[in-house]
Every structure is written in C-alpha cells, then in structure tokens.
C-alpha cells in the first residue's frame, strides 16, 4: 500500500506534477482545438500523462527494478511494485490501437469532407 503523501521529495512531486500537467494539456487540446489531428494528439497526451502517473505510484525511493537476475535473487523486498508497470504496458498498447483507429477515421473524414476542421463537419448533429 503506497500512500501519496509519504513520497514527498522533490523528484516524485515533479513527476506527479508533470503527469497532471500532461493530462491537463491534453484535455485542453481535445476541448479547445478545432483541428482533428490536434484532437487526436491531445488524446495521446492525456494517455501519456495517465501512464506516467501509473508508473509513479508504483515507484518506491531507492528500490530497484523488479527483475530477478543472477545476483539479485534476494532483493525481492527491495524492488518497486511491478504491477503498475505491467498495467502501463497494456495501457500503452490500447492507446496505440485507439490512436491508429482515430487517425484512420480522420483520414476518412478528410476525404469525405475535404477539411480537417471539426467545426466544418456537421452532417450529424454534434
């Protein structure tokens, strides 16, 4: 069980801060930008922020990577939590797939409407 308040040094704070900043920047891009490509980029930035936050919560100061290799068999209680790292790997793959689908839809929209601006595509009610 890792408590956010306990990891109070400068590095972790900056990691958390930049993760939240990334999420906010991405949110800004998705909500404000009109260009479809920029919106997709915004989605990717949000994803990156979440992934960074995920890795950060599993980190314990001074602990090593959770890999059992020759010479580190006895370090099991000196390793950072491996679960968030495994989850992030999965989440990255999912984010990749979503981005790929999103970009292909943008291409289709561009061919269909001859524009990539979201405020000029209004065949359906937004």
């Amino acid at each position: 069980m890792y408590n956010l308040e306990l990891q109070n040094n400068l590095i972790t704070t900056s990691v958390y801060g930049s993760a939240i900043a990334l999420i906010l920047i991405g949110l800004y891009a998705v909500l404000v930008k009109k260009n479809l490509i920029k919106i997709v980029i915004g989605l990717s930035i949000i994803d990156a922020g979440i992934h960074l936050l995920f890795v950060a919560i599993g980190y314990i100061k001074g602990f090593t990577a959770p890999i059992f290799s020759p010479g580190s068999e006895n370090l099991a209680n000196k390793m950072v939590d491996p679960v968030p790292q495994a989850l992030v790997l999965t989440a990255i793959v999912i984010g990749f797939a979503t981005t790929a689908v999103a970009l292909s839809l943008v291409i289709r929209l561009y061919k269909h409407h001859n524009t990539a601006r979201i405020d000029q595509i209004k065949s359906l009610k937004w």
Binding site: V30, L36, I39, L43, I46, D47, I50, F54, A91, I94, T98, V101, A102, L105, V106, R108, L109, H112, I121, S123, L124, W126
Partner: peptide
C-alpha cells in the same frame, strides 16, 4: 457519415477509458 459518428464515439469512448483508468 459513419466516419463522423465513429470519431464522435471514439472521442467520448477515450474519455471514458481515461476515467476508468
């Protein structure tokens, strides 16, 4: 207009996935 509906769904759906995560 499938691409438009799909993109709209994708935007809302990615937002959902961020919140769940």
């Amino acid at each position: 207009d499938g691409a438009e509906a799909g993109f709209k769904y994708l935007l809302i759906g990615s937002f959902a996935s961020v919140l769940i995560l």
